[in-house]
Design a binder for these strands. Structure first.
Lengths: 197, 197
DNA sequence: TGTACATCAGTGAACGCGCGTTCACTGATGTAC
DNA sequence: TGTACATCAGTGAACGCGCGTTCACTGATGTAC
């Protein structure tokens, strides 16, 4: 069975199920730790059916990355909006550097879950990853301090990767107390460094 | 040929060559992107000889990680010592967040090169990774601001992963100007946040 | 000093296994008349 | 409304390939006498 485009409604739903299964699988098991069989099993299907929806395995990651980054940005923005004015950036920081986020990489930040693997991807894959990251930064840059919008964006562009690095470290630490402490100290540090406007 | 311990001087030199070839290969290609054949080829040998020095592939990564982390810590400390007092933490930050470091992951920080892969390793592998990271933090904590040694260590424990996250992001960015700018803004930010004592 | 043998430090072909991918097939659904 | 056929949305066995690992082998070096 060769890959072919289809517009059937059932097909479209299945395709979306595969993409979001992949988005979780990649973040939990790493890009090179996930096989077609794994993903299809998560989606409740068998390996052969994959090629009805996608030309090959490489076509999947970009779509999964898009799915995942949209999810995180939306979640952070919701938390920010739910917080009172003056506490919104704090809410983003506290949500990102939460134990909840640390313990559930499958539904969390791609940069933290896959950053060092993505950094080794080829130019094209990295470019599309950057595009998505930029869209996400634009969406949250408004909550950052800075005199101009460029400055706010640049502050966001420094803070987000820094928090990703801390989250990665908190996932590496084997001592739960040390991991909790790192998150707490980092939340304090970043909140003090980027005072809410 | 089964694996056996040997104390011959030639054997010991070869073993070290394999370990440092692996340390570079892992950081350049990722943990799961490197095979026994790759590593032995880098060391100028063939795949079979690997099992004269190691029981299996899993025994290699811990040694390679040790080799790599010692190298980075030594380099950062040298740069700090070479700087005038009052500019030493700045020297660590500037060295870590340099274009040089970004462009040569093979001889750089393991956390930046492999962090998100290591975070998925089992408890035992992560524990030995943490142990080494702690030793490295202790060695450089003296350059950090803080009233007590615990405070200085905690500051180091927040800064180092934050810088790792920024370095990862700078490697993902495909636009060289954007990547350079991110590094520059991050150097300024961290230097301002952690004033030299 | 020369010779015989043992050990060292590898080589490289071959193995089983899991992966991405292909393909003949199948049951369910849609369409024509 | 019933029947015949086409298309959809998969299934699951089989493929070639690269990986970690094994193993029979080999040339160089060390040791005994």
């Amino acid at each position: 069975m060769a890959h072919r485009k289809s517009a059937g409604a059932k097909s479209e739903r299945t395709r979306r199920r595969i993409v979001s299964a992949a988005a979780a699988a990649y973040r939990e098991q790493g890009i090179s730790g996930v096989g077609v069989r794994d993903i299809m099993k998560r989606a409740g299907l068998t390996q052969g059916g994959f090629y009805f929806h996608f030309p090959d395995k490489d076509a999947l990651f970009p779509e999964a990355a898009w799915d995942a980054s949209a999810g995180l940005a939306t979640m952070l923005l919701e938390r920010a909006e739910a917080a009172p004015p003056g506490k919104r950036l704090q809410a983003i920081i506290d949500t990102y550097l939460s134990r909840e986020h640390r313990d559930h990489p499958g539904s969390g930040c791609m940069m933290a879950a896959l950053g060092s693997e993505v950094a080794r991807n080829d130019r094209k894959a990295r470019a599309s990853f950057c595009e998505r990251a930029n869209i996400m930064l634009e969406r949250i840059a408004g909550y950052f301090p800075g005199a101009t919008s460029v400055e706010r964006r640049q502050n966001a562009a420094v803070l987000m990767p820094s928090m990703a690095g801390v989250l990665i470290a908190s996932r590496v630490l084997t001592d739960p107390a040390a991991s909790d402490l790192l998150l707490e100290r980092a939340r304090e540090f970043f909140a003090a460094s980027f005072p809410d406007t």
